[in-house]
């Protein structure tokens, strides 16, 4: 994975290393450049070897990681920590969008301001909408009639987060 910092200038790099040291101490940060810890019980989900942002993979067993069994599963930890505060639990229910890898290895703080690449929540300002629910909720959602003009009625831009 190419780290975006490698093509930045000296001032940016100085800031980046300060931010990185602070966040490494606090969260074991990976500098994904789009910090979502507020939605994941103040625990960095990038510690997951599969970089899962929405929940544990199927291999998480008894609190241990599938890939490195001597490690704890970060998602078990996120869920456990989220029980402390109601707001953490509430935020955890949101669907985290797919990672923007073009920000990997850059400063999340500078991406919020002044670069304005991401919103405060760590996501793009206009994230790709998540159609809400499955076909059993909306039997028409997947109707195969491919009409260009009737498409607006079926699209549901209600984002899940």
């Amino acid at each position: 994975m190419f780290h975006q910092i490698k093509h930045r200038g000296l001032l940016y790099r100085i800031w980046y290393y300060v931010e990185r040291r602070i966040k490494e101490l606090m969260f074991d940060c990976h500098m994904c450049g789009q910090c979502v810890v507020r939605s994941t019980a103040l625990t960095c989900p990038m510690q997951c070897p599969k970089q899962m942002r929405n929940g544990p993979c199927g291999g998480s067993m008894d609190g241990q990681c599938e890939v490195f069994p001597e490690r704890r599963c970060i998602w078990t930890q996120i869920h456990r920590r989220s029980r402390r505060f109601e707001w953490m639990r509430r935020k955890l229910a949101g669907i985290q969008p797919a990672i923007d890898w073009s920000l990997f290895g850059s400063s999340a703080w500078l991406n919020i301001w002044p670069e304005k690449k991401i919103a405060l929540g760590g996501h793009a300002f206009t994230p790709a909408p998540v159609p809400s629910g499955n076909i059993w909720d909306r039997p028409d959602a997947g109707a195969p009639a491919p009409t260009a003009d009737g498409s607006a009625a079926q699209s549901n831009p209600e984002a899940g987060r």
Partner: peptide, 19 residues
């Protein structure tokens, strides 16, 4: 691991619902 399974489901679902 560009995205996780939930994101993949959302991507397929968008192909279905919005084309």
């Amino acid at each position: 691991f560009d995205m996780d399974s939930t994101n993949l489901i959302a991507m397929v679902s968008r192909m279905r619902a919005e084309g």
